[in-house]
Amino acid sequence: MNIRPNAILEVDALERRFDVSAPWLNRMIEGKPRRTLRAVDGVDFVIQRGQTLALVGESGCGKSTIAKLVTGLHPPSGGKIRFNGDPDRMQMIFQDPFASLNPRWRVGRIIAEPLRTLRPETPAERVAARVDELLRTVGLAAADGLKFPHEFSGGQRQRISIARALAGEPEFLVCDEPTSALDVSVQAQVLNLMKKLQKDMGLTYLFISHDLSVVRHMADVIAVMYLGRIVEIQPTADLFASPLHPYTRLLLDTIPDLDAPKRDRAPMGGEVPSPVSPPSGCSFHPRCPLAFDRCKRERPERRAQVHERRVACFAAEATSTGETTDT
C-alpha cells in the first residue's frame, strides 16, 4: 500500500469478525456449529488531511465497529489501518454524551483530563486557563466548568464532549453519531460548531451517521455501507448528483425530503438480512431491482488498488464509463 501524499488515514481490506456461537455446552448438546458474524468485511478507504469522510448505512452495517477499529478499541481480524499522524492526537466523540461523561466529575476536570494525560508537566494554572478557553470555544461559559454533567442539556453535554476531545489537541476526530441523540435545533448548533472547528484548526473527521442529510452537510467524501462492506464511495456532490449503487439510489429515494412534502414514494422492499448468514454473491441481491444471475454467485469488489473504482456492483460497472470489470 502506498502512502498517499496527504492521507492521514488509510484503511485496507479491513475485517472484523465476532464469534457469536452458542456457549460451548449448548453446542455440544444441541450439535450447533460455531457461528461467525462478519461485522466489517473487507473495507477500504482513505481520508485526506483536513477533510471529512462520512460512513453512512443502516443499523448494524458496521459503522461503529469501524470507529472502534480505527481508534484501537477493537483489534482487526484482518487488513491494515495506517494512521499517518500522532496516535496520541486521535480522539473520539460518541453518540450518547451522557454515558460518555463521568457523572461524578465536575465538567472542568472532565475537560482537563486528556490535557493532563497528554502533557502531565503542565502547571495547574495553565490547565485551568486552557479549560476556560475550551469551554468558550464550544460556546459554554467558564463558570460551567464548576458544574456537573447532569446540570446540562443534551446539546450542552455534547459540547462538553467536544471540548474534552479538543483538550487532547487532536488532529483527527472519530465522531460516531455525534448528534443522533439531539433535537434538530440543537443538532444544528453542534454541527455548525464542528464545521467551524474544522476550518479553524484544520481537523480531520471520520464522521459516522445514519442520516444522509446530515452527512451531505458535513462530508467531503461519503462511503455507503451495507452489511459490513462499502458498496459505494464518492465525493459528496457526485454521490447526490449521480449515485451509482442500486442501494444508494434506493436509499436516496426512500429518505423523507423536506423540500418535497407529501411526496408519494415507492418504499424499498425487503429487509436487511442477518450479517451472520449474509446472502451469497452480492449481499444486496435479494433486495436489488437490477439483480441478475451473476449477482447471486459472485461478489462485486471495490478495492483500494483501484480507488478510482467507486462502486461495488456488476450492473453499475457495466454502465459506467471508463471502468472495466477485469482489473
Binding site: 434538530v184 444522509l212 452537510h217 423536506l258
Partner: peptide, 11 residues
C-alpha cells in the same frame, strides 16, 4: 428556526 436548522438534501 426549526425548518432552517434541518440540513437539506438538495440545497
Amino acid at each position: 428556526g426549526l425548518m432552517g436548522s434541518i440540513p437539506s438534501l438538495r440545497k
